[in-house]
């Protein structure tokens, strides 16, 4: 077993502000808090259970893998816990325990550990986990069905599914402000738009995620959805609707800027974000799936090493 990793120097630029991995991870968890608290407020104790299970299973899988592979135990740095938090944010509050168990297994073991642990994962582990279990157990990820037993003081339905089956007229009654406040059916950490934006801005201010990715992601969504809405306003929804429904904001601030699966240079970061945004809307508008965020991010994760090759030419070099 290789105890010590070789020091691999990747190409410039390097970003360092003296922080440690664990501190970075605690910042991310802190940033997730507003959205999570809103989720708990809306869905009650069930949501707390899902979040708790998700975090503990994630840490458990990493520890189990470390024991079996006899590698260095580093659950203390909180990176598995962050995956657990982000994973829980994408789950409906009604998710059963075994879905969380298998989902975190896919996220931690298949998504990250077998590629070499923290910093080596080609995909965002949480996205991979959710994508695979959402593919296997569609009925639990049909937010209309899953959340049918919650009685709220607002119209409880999953806006993207409505858009997919009934066209833009069915969602015209929803105001953007209601969506931002979380008055929609959806995943625990994905309904309260304002909270996610606050968390995201906090992370950008702390320098943990890069604004280039987030903003170009938003730009991609705006450009594509506006083009669609311009040509067929009755079938396609406008950009603000797309921004505040489904996993969009989560994708922008928590999923796509994940360290090892996103680019490090400025131009590639912008391309990466744009690609995510464009693919998201394309999948939502002309694809089969109601929400395209997961697949858009996974696809851009694969392309990431390629676009990261675009870098500035050294001055004077021909």
């Amino acid at each position: 077993m290789i105890k010590q990793k070789k020091l691999i120097v990747s190409h410039a630029p390097f970003i360092h502000n003296g922080s440690k991995i664990s501190i970075k991870n605690y910042h991310i968890m802190l940033a997730a808090l507003p959205a999570l608290l809103a989720g708990i407020y809306y869905y009650g104790i069930q949501a707390v259970g899902v979040i708790g299970l998700s975090i503990s299973f994630s840490v458990f899988w990493e520890l189990a893998f470390n024991l079996i592979a006899k590698s260095e135990k580093r659950i203390g740095d909180g990176s598995s816990a962050v995956i657990g938090v982000v994973f829980a944010m994408m789950l409906p509050a009604t998710a059963p325990w075994w879905i969380i168990l298998i989902g975190t297994f896919v996220a931690i073991i298949i998504g990250r550990e077998i590629f070499g642990g923290i910093g080596s994962n080609p995909f965002n582990p949480a996205v991979l986990g959710i994508a695979i279990i959402a593919l296997s157990w569609k009925e639990y990820f049909d937010f209309n069905q899953a959340l049918i037993n919650f009685d709220m003081d607002f119209n409880m339905f999953y806006p993207l599914a409505a858009l997919k089956s009934f066209g833009a007229s069915s969602i015209s009654s929803i105001s953007v402000f209601d969506l931002m406040l979380g008055k929609q059916a959806g995943a625990i950490g994905a309904v309260f738009g304002i909270g996610i934006i606050i968390g995201g801005l906090y992370l950008i201010a702390k320098g943990i995620i890069r604004w280039e990715i987030c903003f170009s992601f938003i730009a991609g969504i705006f450009l594509t959805s506006m083009t669609f809405a311009m040509f067929a306003p009755t079938t396609y929804a406008g950009p603000f609707f797309h921004l505040f429904t489904g996993y969009t904001l989560l994708g922008i601030f928590f999923l796509s800027p994940e360290d090892s699966s996103s680019p490090v240079n400025k131009m590639p970061m912008i391309l990466y974000g744009l690609g995510c945004g464009i693919l998201t809307i394309l999948i939502r508008n002309i694809g089969v799936y109601a929400d395209g965020i997961l697949y858009a991010i996974l696809i851009m994760n694969i392309i990431n090493p390629l676009i990261d090759k675009i870098k500035p030419k050294a001055f004077g070099k021909v």
Partner: peptide
């Protein structure tokens, strides 16, 4: 029992 249909698909075979 709710089957884990991912394993029947081709990517599931690789995993």
């Amino acid at each position: 029992f709710k089957p884990f249909t991912f394993l029947i698909e081709a990517p599931g075979a690789f995993v």
